[in-house]
Amino acid sequence: MASVDVKGVSKNYGNITALKNVSLSLDTNGCIGILGPNGAGKTTLMKLITNIIKPSTGEILVNGTNVSNDPSTALRTVGSIIEQPEFYTYLTAYETMMFVCRIKGGTKEYCMSEIDRVSEITEVKGFLNRKTGTYSRGMKQRLALAVALINNPDVIVLDEPTFGLDPKGMSDIRNALNRIREQRNSIIILSTHLISEVKELCDRVIIMDEGSIVYDSEVDSVDKSLRVRFYEVPADGLNSIANEPVIEDGGKTAIFRVGKEVPNYMIIRDLMSRGAKIRDVEESSGIEEKYLEIVGRGKD
């Protein structure tokens, strides 16, 4: 079983502390979503795990090996997309993948079959023999995912893998990630701004703020326990429904926020008794509620 252990890691850039004494232990296959506003330390954590930067204090172990001291061993079973990677422009996707596969210890024959496998998943087969300098952003992102998946890594580190992609590109990457996640062969660490991505792909959610981990929970439990509904009804002097006060009064309509603990029938009964009609109901995810509660509404 793969493992990632972040032990008391801090990262300073001059006087700025990007990460403050972060500890984290991951030893179960599945997807871990990392959410947080800009500057929360998500990308810094991703870069530290993949040896792009080195910790100021603390250590990071992948499968028990220190990443900074022995990257050749620690990163052998790690695949990653960090920020928006670029490739050597005069090499083809095939050559790029072959290079990474061979560096990770694959034989030529094995790498050829691996390239076949990952290019199927990420749909890069059509442009395998084109030089990467001619690629669009979306093609580069798919290639980055293919490179991250080559050699069946135990640990996959993905930093905003759908950033900058059009809706089709985002959907393609998510579908590919879903297929990988379903196999449950690896630990996927997914940093993203998109709560929907974490909900769709991840089993565990971590929220970071100002360089620290401030929340860590199973996605299902937080999503169900904190789910809320928003009711939009004609104002008509309504100040509350089921004892929940109005949160927004637009003059003609009022919006009420009701927690999961208040059953739907109570709301409907209350509104009917007062002759009010529901114009719209929206349900927000529990993760979103938790995120906004932690990082503050209106922030980022």
Partner: peptide, 14 residues
């Protein structure tokens, strides 16, 4: 400058 470091630094190589 060209951000290829994001591609090569995480590789298992000295």
């Amino acid at each position: 400058e060209n951000k290829t470091a994001y591609h090569i630094f995480p590789l298992p190589i000295k």
